[in-house]
Amino acid sequence: MSASFVLSLAFGYAQLALALAACFAAWRVLRGPRAQDRVLGLDTLYVTAMLLFIVTGMRVGTPFFFEAAMVIGVLGFVATLALAKFLIRGEVIE
């Protein structure tokens, strides 16, 4: 049992789990049924993608993925905020 064996096992599991999580979130985006479900799915997708980038960065051993993860985090926040605001103000079914 060497350290790199333990780590590659953990990296493999984490990447698989996060990729699956991203698929589930994407399923919710595609499926709906309502607009707020899609936005919630998109927000979750952003978070899981960010975590996946961090794990990939750890696996490769470079800190550069971290900056990409940060950009994803910021963009996800702004996107979700704008979409939620749009749901309140823009498209109100009456």
Partner: peptide, 28 residues
């Protein structure tokens, strides 16, 4: 190459990764 690391670091890192990714998966 992560072989320079000791198991005392690798095992907690692995456990934290498994915990974090499992919880995220459960959430989705």
């Amino acid at each position: 190459d992560f072989d320079t690391l000791s198991l005392w670091v690798a095992v907690p890192v692995g456990l934290l990764l498994v915990l974090g990714s499992t919880l995220t998966l459960l959430g989705t």
